[in-house]
Design a protein around this nucleic acid. Structure first.
Lengths: 196, 196
DNA sequence: ATTTAATATTGACCACGGTCATTTTTATCC
DNA sequence: GGATAAAAATGACCGTGGTCAATATTAAAT
């Protein structure tokens, strides 16, 4: 037993959890996030229903574990990019993650619920990577030709707020004449490049 | 039959709906929004469960009808106020509605879900009053000593985004060392009064 | 090997939101 | 007032997320 796994989790536990996650990913690939049923996942994984809830607090916790890594990988790609030279470049860089987040209304709802962090006590993966975003994106943003009167962290924080707003508006019957990207561009120009 | 009620809704319908709403309000007053059960509401209203769903599309629709008017009344008060002279005055004016929206996590979730509008087809009361906010608050904001390089509507739109963000962050384990109001003040100073 | 304690799994069961064929009430027409 | 059609109310029923006492498995101790 290496120093890393001093905890008492058995190998069996990790195996079962992996089976459940793999089954869930298959189900999502087949029928999407919204239509996923816990019973279907446990059937495919070959375990009892109770086992599922021994591994995941609730269905939402599974969803987080499925969604967060995807968002995370998009953010990784973002960080790799060269410094943005304009708002348009930022929006373009964000397009893939926007696509993923808004492809299914249900997915967006899950993200929304958990971006501000689910339970106050314990912080979930989605909240963690929104938190991370603030620090990961800040240096990237700071390198661009944007306002310098506020901290880079605040800059990134605001970007997050407007990103959510633009996506939420897109699901709204009253506001879907503009694309998310166009809407976000308007917001970000006003936020990052105020022309006093 | 007056000209107003040319529709075929019977008086009975209105009565039943009123009974359901009254019962629901009682339940909320007793045990809060989150703990409300549809079965409890119909029991108190003295109608069958099916009747509930003939009047409300789902539980969320009832919640909207309970929550939206409250938020609405706070917004009414906002509009009455004299022009804000500083960010602090805006935040102070928003405090009551912030309190209400964040008193129960469940309430905030309902608002979040419906602020960007629930179904794309039909727009709910909460989305409507967020939409209204943009136009109601815009003139109020425009009268204050804030940036003039962007439209008043955009100003109000951003305020909404930051309001959501500040509240969401408050529910987050990683960010609750600052009060919502303090956080919002930081955001709004950066948004409304950029010091290039 | 056997006992023991901790951990993992099971599946019958429950809670609760939501549905729908049936029944009851209301309005309309002769 | 009786017949007819439309609208409203009913409650048994279902789907699905989530629980928990009972059982099975694993690891450690003697």
């Amino acid at each position: 037993m290496s120093q890393d796994d001093m905890t008492k989790v058995q190998a069996r536990t990790l195996k079962t959890r992996a089976k459940l996650l793999a089954a869930a990913q298959e189900v999502v690939a087949d029928i999407g996030f919204e239509a996923l049923r816990v019973e279907q996942v446990v059937a495919k994984a070959g375990v009892a229903k109770g086992t599922f809830f021994a591994h995941f607090k609730d269905k939402d916790a599974l969803m987080e574990q499925l969604i967060a890594p995807v968002v995370d990988s998009y953010l990784d790609e973002l960080e790799m990019r060269p410094a943005p030279r304009s708002v348009e470049e930022i929006v373009e860089a964000l397009t893939p993650v926007i696509r993923f987040m808004t492809a299914e209304r249900y997915v967006f709802d899950v993200i929304l619920r958990h971006s501000g962090a689910a339970a106050k006590e314990e912080i979930g993966p989605i909240a963690q990577n929104f938190y991370r975003t603030q620090f990961a994106l800040a240096p990237w943003l700071a390198k661009g030709p944007f306002r310098k009167d506020i901290s880079a962290e605040l800059l990134a924080d605001g970007l997050g707020a407007f990103l959510i707003q633009a996506m939420a508006l897109n699901f709204c019957a009253l506001h879907n004449e503009r694309t998310i990207e166009d809407q976000l561009t308007i917001y970000l120009k006003a936020w990052l490049q105020p022309a006093l």
